[in-house]
Design a protein around this nucleic acid. Structure first.
Length: 713
DNA sequence: CCTATATAGATTTTT
DNA sequence: TCTATATAGG
C-alpha cells in the first residue's frame, strides 16, 4: 500500500494515482515508465479494483511478463492481466470468432511470415502470375499495409492506380480466400478481425467493456490504426484509458504504427490529464546530452529535453575502423577491458541496424571465446525441423490447415509427392473439407487404384493415429508425434552436418512444451500453438546469463545495459538506404539511433567501418550523417586505424548540422546491381579515390561561415 | 518420387 | 557468403 506510492516523484505519483478517465503519460527514455505502469496496476488493485477488470497491453511478451512479475512483487499473486495486443486478440478470437461471419472457427491457425509468403506464392501460381515480376515479399508487405489501414481488397481495387496495384488487389483477394479456406489468420487479421468482431456486435462489445474497466497501453506511440480503434472501442463510455509512450521512441511506422496516435491523444479523448516524465534515471549526463542533441534535429516532435541528476560520467566514444572485422575486434577488446574493470558481461550489449551485421561479431567473439547471445536473426521457430514438428501440431489442431498438412506429408519423405497431394487437395476441395480430414476419412475406393495409393495409405494410418491421440499434456503429445512420425530418426541423419543441432532444437521444443504444461495446466494444443506463433526471440532472451547480448536496435527498445555499443554508423546502414528518402523516414532512423543510445547507463560506444564485407563483396561506405549531429566536444574520438576516415575526414565536421559530407551523401559511381523491382540505391564506391572527391563543392570552411555560432573547437 | 546440383536472390526493422 | 528454389537425373 504505502509501498506502492513510496519513492515516486510528484509526476510519477500523479500518473500512478490517477483513477478514472483518460490519461496520457509522455515518458522519456529511462524516466521510470515501467515503474509507473506497474505501480498503477498495483495501486488500482490496492484500491479494490478486481485484477481481472484491468487490462494492460504491451507490444512484446517480455515486457508483459516483466510487468506482471513486478506487479506480483507489489501485491502478491494475481491472474495475468498484462498481455500483448496480439495475444489478447488471439484469445478473444479463440472464444468468440464464430460470432463474426468471417469463415473461421475457434480452431483457427495463425500464419506467420513464412506461411504468408507460401500462400502468396500459391496464389500467384493460381493466377498465373510471374513471381519474378511480382515479388511475393512485396505483395505480402502491400497486403499487410492494406490490412493495417483496414482496407478490403475491394477497396484496394477501387483505388488502384495502374496495373501494379490491380495485381495487389487481385492477389489480396486470392490470399484472403485461401486463408479463409484454411481456417487461418495472419498477424494483421488477429487485430482487425477482433476489431470487426467487437464493433459489429454491440452486445459482445458491451460484455468486453464491462469486464475490462481499466485499460493501460504501453508504448502508445507504436500503436497502429487498428490497435488505436480497438482500445477506443474497449474504453467506451468510461474512457478509462491510460496510455504511456514517447513519440521520440516511435520506430515502427513501417509496420503501420502512427505516432500521431499519441500526438493526438488529447484531442481524441477530451479532458485527458497529461503527465510529462522528463527526468531520466538511467544514463549519465554525458550520454543523455549526446542523445538529446541528436534527437533535437527532428522537426516533428513534442518539445522535451530529458534532464538528469546523474554524474557526468565518461564521454561517449566514437571509433572508426578500417573494416568490419577491425570494428568487431575493437568492440571485443573494449568488452574485455570493461569486464576486467568490473562490468559483468550481461550488462554489455552490441546493437546494429540490420541483423546481418551480427555475423562478423559472432566470428570474433567465438575466436576470442567471449560468451554471447544473439537475439533475433534466424528465429527458433523458423528453423526447418521446428517448422516440421509444428506442422504436425497445426494440422491436428486445425484439420483445414492444408499448408501444414502439405509440409507434414513430406517430412520425413514417405513416397507422397506434389502430384499426390494435388489430387488429395482437389478431392478435399470438392468435399469442402481440409486435406487432413479428407485423408483420415478416405476409404480408398476404385478411384485410388493408382500407384500413389501406397504412400498415402501409410500417411493415412499416421494421421489417424495422431488424430486419436490425447492433445494434452502438450509435451506428451509432441513426443508421441515425434515417435509416430519417426522425426527424430529422420533428423539423426549422419549425412547432415547440422543433424546434432536439429535434434537438439527438437528437444528444445519438447522442453518448451513441458514448460507450457507446467505454466498453464488447463490449456490445450491450440493455446500452445498460439504461444509459439506470438513469442519472439526477445521474449526468450534471458538477461541473467553471463554473456554479452547482440541484437538489432529495434529489439533493444525497453532494455537497458551498463555499456552499449552501437555499430555500423554508416550512411546507408543508419540511416538505412531503404529509409532515407523522405524527411519522415530519416527522422525515424534518427529516433532509432536515439533509442539505441538511451539504452546505455554508464558507457556508450559508437563505431563505424569504412568498408565491410557484404554478400561476400567488399563495399565502401561513408560515415553516417547522424554523426555530424552529435556535439563534437562531447564525443571522444578514438584513434582510428584509417587516415582518411578519421580524424581529419570525419571529426572536424562533427557538431555542424549538414557538415562536410552533407545530409545526404552524394551518389557517385556506385556500382549498381540489378535487383529486380525496387531501385537499389547503394552508396558504395569502387575505390579509395571516391573518398577524396566527395562533394568537392562544399569545403569545411564554407560550412563554418554558414554556421558562425557553432563552436567547432 | 527423391536427391544432388545449379542458380538466383538476399539484408531493413517484427507482432 | 548463405539460403531457398528450380531443374535434371536416378
Amino acid at each position: 500500500m504505502t509501498r506502492i506510492l513510496d519513492d515516486l516523484t510528484d509526476a510519477q505519483r500523479e500518473a500512478v494515482t490517477h483513477r478514472d478517465g483518460p490519461m496520457l503519460v509522455v515518458a522519456g527514455a529511462g524516466s521510470g515508465k515501467t515503474r509507473v505502469v506497474t505501480r498503477r496496476i498495483a495501486h488500482l488493485i490496492d484500491q479494490g479494483v478486481r485484477p481481472w477488470q484491468i487490462l494492460a497491453v504491451t507490444f512484446t511478451n517480455k515486457a508483459a511478463r516483466e510487468m506482471h512479475d513486478r506487479v506480483e512483487r507489489l501485491v502478491g499473486p494475481v491472474p495475468a492481466l498484462v498481455t500483448t495486443f496480439h495475444s489478447a486478440c488471439a484469445r478473444w478470437l479463440r472464444r468468440d470468432v464464430e460470432r463474426l461471419d468471417c469463415g473461421r472457427d475457434r480452431r483457427y491457425s495463425i500464419y506467420d511470415d513464412d506461411d504468408q509468403i507460401a500462400v502468396i506464392r500459391a496464389c500467384l501460381k493460381d493466377l498465373d502470375l510471374d513471381e519474378k515480376r511480382f515479388a511475393p515479399r512485396g505483395l505480402s508487405a502491400a497486403i499487410s499495409r492494406s490490412k493495417t489501414e483496414m482496407r478490403t481488397y475491394e477497396e484496394v481495387l477501387a483505388d488502384a492506380h495502374g496495373p501494379r496495384q490491380e495485381v495487389v488487389a487481385e492477389v489480396y483477394q486470392a490470399y484472403e480466400k485461401r486463408l479463409r479456406g484454411a481456417n487461418a489468420v495472419d498477424f494483421d487479421d488477429l487485430l482487425w478481425l477482433t476489431l470487426r468482431m467487437l464493433t459489429s456486435d454491440p452486445e459482445l462489445l458491451a460484455g468486453y467493456q464491462q469486464r475490462y474497466r481499466y485499460l493501460l497501453v504501453d508504448e502508445y506511440q507504436d500503436t497502429n490504426r487498428v490497435q488505436y480503434l480497438l482500445m477506443k472501442a474497449l474504453a467506451g463510455q468510461s474512457r478509462n484509458l491510460h496510455a504511456t509512450g514517447d513519440p521520440d521512441q516511435s520506430i515502427y511506422s513501417w509496420r503501420g504504427a502512427d505516432y500521431r496516435n499519441i500526438m493526438d491523444f488529447e484531442s481524441d479523448y477530451p479532458g485527458t490529464r497529461v503527465v510529462f516524465l522528463e527526468k531520466n534515471y538511467r544514463s549519465t549526463a554525458r550520454i543523455l546530452n549526446v542523445a538529446n542533441e541528436l534527437i533535437s534535429h527532428n522537426a516533428h516532435r513534442y518539445e522535451k529535453r530529458l534532464v538528469t541528476d546523474a554524474a557526468q560520467g565518461e564521454r561517449p566514444a566514437f571509433f572508426c575502423a578500417a573494416d568490419d572485422r577491425t570494428e568487431a575486434a575493437w568492440v571485443v577488446r573494449e568488452v574485455r577491458r570493461l569486464e576486467r574493470a568490473g562490468t559483468p558481461l550481461d550488462e554489455i550489449a552490441v546493437f546494429y541496424r540490420v541483423n546481418a551485421l551480427s555475423r562478423t561479431f559472432e566470428e570474433v567473439l567465438i575466436r576470442e571465446s567471449v560468451p554471447y547471445t544473439i537475439v533475433g536473426g534466424v528465429r527458433f521457430y523458423e528453423r526447418k525441423e521446428i517448422k516440421d514438428v509444428l506442422a504436425y501440431l497445426k494440422a491436428v489442431a486445425n484439420p483445414r490447415d492444408n499448408a501444414a498438412f502439405r509440409r507434414l506429408a513430406g517430412a520425413p519423405p514417405r513416397g507422397v509427392g506434389v502430384k499426390t497431394l494435388d489430387a488429395l487437395e482437389a478431392l478435399a476441395a470438392q468435399r469442402g473439407a481440409g486435406m487432413m480430414e479428407t485423408l483420415v476419412a478416405e476409404d480408398f475406393g476404385e478411384a485410388w487404384t493408382g500407384r500413389y495409393t501406397k504412400g498415402l495409405k501409410a500417411l493415412r494410418a499416421l494421421c489417424r493415429a495422431l488424430a486419436a491421440l490425447p492433445r494434452a499434456p502438450v509435451r506428451a503429445f509432441v513426443e508421441a508425434v515425434l515417435e509416430h512420425a519417426g522425426l527424430k530418426d529422420h533428423y539423426r541423419d549422419p549425412d547432415d552436418i547440422r543433424s546434432e543441432d536439429r535434434v537438439e532444437n527438437i528437444e528444445g521444443l519438447v522442453n518448451r512444451a513441458a514448460e507450457f504444461d507446467a505454466e498453464r495446466p488447463d490449456a490445450d494444443l491450440a493455446a500452445f500453438l498460439e504461444d509459439v506463433a506470438l513469442v519472439t526471440d526477445v521474449d526468450e532472451w534471458n538477461s541473467e546469463s553471463r554473456q554479452i547480448t547482440l541484437m538489432s536496435m529495434h529489439a533493444a527498445k525497453g532494455l537497458e545495459f551498463r555499456a552499449v555499443f552501437v555499430a555500423g554508423l554508416e550512411e546507408g546502414l543508419l540511416p538505412h538506404r531503404n529509409s532515407m528518402d523522405t524527411d519522415a523516414e530519416r527522422e525515424e532512423e534518427r529516433r532509432l539511433l536515439y533509442v539505441a543510445m538511451t539504452r546505455a547507463k554508464e558507457r556508450l560506444y559508437l563505431s563505424a567501418a569504412k568498408q565491410r564485407l557484404q554478400w561476400g563483396e567488399i563495399t565502401m561506405s561513408l560515415p553516417s550523417s547522424f554523426l555530424d549531429e552529435l556535439p563534437a566536444e562531447e564525443v571522444e574520438c578514438l584513434p582510428g586505424e584509417d587516415e582518411v576516415f578519421a580524424p581529419e575526414g570525419l571529426v572536424p565536421s562533427m557538431g555542424r548540422p549538414g557538415g562536410y559530407y552533407g545530409r545526404r551523401a552524394p551518389v557517385r559511381s556506385g556500382r549498381r546491381r540489378k535487383l529486380g523491382a525496387g531501385q537499389w540505391r547503394r552508396r558504395t564506391f569502387e575505390d579509395e579515390d571516391a573518398w577524396d572527391d566527395l562533394d568537392p563543392g562544399l569545403e569545411p570552411e564554407d560550412e563554418i561561415q554558414e554556421h558562425p555560432d557553432d563552436d567547432v573547437g
